[in-house]
Simulated assay, not measured.
Amino acid sequence: MLDELVVVLFRPKYPENIGSAARACLNMGVSRLVVVDPYNFNMDKALPLATAHARHILTSARIVDTLAQAVEGCTAVFGTTARTGGWRKGIMNPETLANVVDDRLRTGGRVAVVFGPEDKGLTNEETSVCSGLVTIPTSREDTSLNLAQAVVVVLYECFKRSLAGPFVPDGPPEERPTTIKEQEALFGNLQETLLAIDFLKDDNPDYWMLPVRRFFSKINLKRNEFNLLMGVCRQVRWFVDKYGPQAGGGAK
């Protein structure tokens, strides 16, 4: 059931942690491992930590240059974080994340969970492409977890949730979920449209788009719904271009 769950290690510093993460993937039934721009990667140092059992996961892991490449084709991306507050709202615990991931996978999606560098984690810019964030509650004495520890905790909850019951298709197949690339295209179109009707502020539109992004992160947006919203945006832009933003009693 976790065949379409992808573990993404973003700029990990230590090859040993990559090997341990591969072993954690095997333990929890995950075969897709992607490593983004690793620092000083050394397969000889990583292999012993993967053990002979998870060797195939480590050696078949994709190594890419960017986060965008790592999540290509995914319909949802969830980032891990130890920092909360500020822009980082609605953060889930691993159990809650597992329920969301299970729902996305059972409807035909591919989900990525992104783990940041050991020393500083994911930045705000990197989390901006995420559908949601997850944090692992810890004692206040030390909130830092080893990378592989974090991977196994999150994957354990996903694995446990996947055992709750078999997936039994009911009725005709649903429209496929949208990919992250499609969602970003929609957000870009929405932002331009909301600026055109003076709904967003010109000074920092990316900031004012955050509530819109959070709203859509709660929805397993399907391709037909994506087409509908893109069409609405096109029609609104056509109307504004022809009549202006105040036509028909527009935003003040």
Results as ranks from 00 to 15, higher is better:
127 T>A: 15
134 V>R: 15
157 E>G: 00
65 D>Y: 11
140 R>C: 11
153 V>Y: 08
169 P>D: 14
146 N>P: 01
170 D>N: 06
59 T>P: 01
54 A>L: 05
89 K>E: 15
162 S>F: 14
70 A>R: 07
110 R>Q: 11
116 G>A: 10
84 T>C: 14
147 L>D: 08
157 E>V: 00
114 V>N: 15
159 F>K: 07
96 T>S: 04
161 R>W: 06
116 G>N: 06
58 L>G: 04
154 V>A: 08
126 E>F: 13
126 E>H: 04
117 P>R: 15
98 A>S: 03
126 E>K: 06
54 A>W: 03
80 T>I: 08
127 T>E: 12
100 V>H: 09
97 L>T: 00
50 A>M: 07
111 V>L: 15
50 A>R: 05
48 P>F: 03
65 D>R: 13
109 G>M: 09
118 E>T: 04
58 L>Y: 11
88 R>V: 13
119 D>T: 10
169 P>S: 13
154 V>L: 11
143 T>Y: 05
107 T>S: 11
54 A>H: 03
103 D>Y: 03
158 C>I: 00
78 F>Y: 11
54 A>M: 06
116 G>T: 08
113 V>M: 05
70 A>C: 13
56 H>M: 06
165 G>R: 05
68 A>F: 09
74 C>Q: 02
93 N>I: 03
130 C>L: 12
149 Q>D: 07
129 V>R: 08
56 H>V: 00
81 T>R: 15
86 G>E: 01
151 V>I: 01
141 E>K: 10
129 V>Q: 13
122 L>E: 13
83 R>T: 04
68 A>E: 09
48 P>N: 04
43 M>E: 08
131 S>Q: 14
45 K>L: 05
84 T>A: 12
174 E>I: 04
147 L>M: 09
52 A>V: 14
58 L>F: 10
58 L>M: 07
81 T>N: 14
52 A>H: 13
154 V>I: 12
150 A>C: 14
94 P>N: 09
146 N>Y: 06
164 A>I: 02
100 V>I: 06
170 D>L: 11
82 A>K: 10
103 D>Q: 02
81 T>G: 15
74 C>T: 06
85 G>T: 00
170 D>C: 15
92 M>F: 11
43 M>W: 10
55 R>A: 12
78 F>A: 05
91 I>V: 13
135 T>H: 13
133 L>R: 15
143 T>R: 07
155 L>V: 00
165 G>L: 04
46 A>C: 01
67 L>N: 04
117 P>V: 03
79 G>V: 09
143 T>V: 03
105 L>A: 01
62 R>F: 10
97 L>P: 00
52 A>Q: 11
86 G>H: 01
152 V>K: 07
56 H>S: 10
80 T>F: 08
65 D>M: 07
86 G>W: 01
87 W>E: 07
142 D>N: 07
59 T>G: 07
152 V>Q: 13
112 A>P: 02
162 S>A: 05
143 T>F: 02
171 G>L: 14
124 N>D: 13
46 A>R: 01
129 V>N: 07
150 A>L: 06
155 L>K: 04
53 H>L: 10
144 S>A: 14
67 L>F: 05
159 F>G: 01
61 A>I: 02
56 H>Y: 10
53 H>R: 14
101 V>N: 07
174 E>R: 08
57 I>L: 14
101 V>E: 15
